[in-house]
């Protein structure tokens, strides 16, 4: 098969997060939370007349940015004179929490300091939770957007990437069947992929 035109180009590289953005209909509460409670510097604000999109009836807006460290900004759009559409209300429940922002800190002391600061400011914050490579605390902003602050428990290394590739390969196989219903099916399929990885290793060692 001929290589796609894109494959012949040098692979471009990303250099981390510039900003993420979401809408808000709580201007005062959002500014108070991010600037005053979290203490994130307000570093930029754009105000515009609907970006000129009259056909779309694009509302006039403020687009404002807070600095969350290492150049990563968190930004909001406040659409003047509009009401929040029902489909943009953050739903309750765990599925909507998948759409979240996770900031990093370097040490356990920093993580606990954030937990204490949030509690002292009246923000409901979780206990710290240790996952495989992260220890995290969780809370919500005034818009009910979920936020996580986490620290790395160890570096992500080559075996983690190898394992992730095998996991996704197994998941794609199951997903294609249309009959995948639980994680045990994935774990059993994954074992076959690890066995293929073993066979490939043995072959490369033998040659």
């Amino acid at each position: 098969m001929p290589a796609s035109p894109a494959a012949t180009l040098p692979a471009p590289v990303l250099h981390g997060v510039d900003h993420t953005a979401r809408p808000t209909w709580k201007l005062r509460e959002t500014v108070h939370f991010y600037r005053d409670i979290l203490g994130l510097p307000l570093v930029h604000a754009i105000t515009a007349k609907g970006w000129g999109r009259e056909k779309e009836q694009h509302a006039d807006f403020i687009h404002f940015f807070f600095d969350a460290g290492k150049g990563a900004l968190i930004a909001f759009f406040y659409y003047v004179g509009t009401k929040q559409p029902p489909e943009l209300v953050v739903p309750r429940g765990y599925m909507a929490m998948a759409n979240h922002t996770a900031w990093s800190v370097d040490t356990e002391e920093e993580l606990l300091a954030w937990q204490k600061r949030l509690e002292m400011q009246g923000v409901t914050v979780s206990q710290s939770v240790r996952h495989e490579i992260l220890e995290s605390i969780y809370f919500r902003d005034p818009n009910f957007y979920p936020i996580e602050i986490s620290r790395r428990l160890r570096d992500v290394e080559r075996p983690d990437a190898t394992d992730a590739e095998l996991t996704i390969d197994a998941a794609l196989e199951l997903d294609a069947t249309g009959h995948w219903t639980d994680i045990e099916q994935l774990w059993r399929t994954k074992a076959r992929y690890v066995e293929k990885y073993r066979d490939a290793l043995a072959e490369s060692e033998a040659s």
Partner: peptide, 18 residues
């Protein structure tokens, strides 16, 4: 193990049944 790791502890693969 914490529950956060416990419930994912077979992620590398299972030859068997839960």
């Amino acid at each position: 193990l914490t529950e956060a790791v416990w419930y994912g502890c077979l992620t590398a693969g299972l030859d068997g049944k839960i």
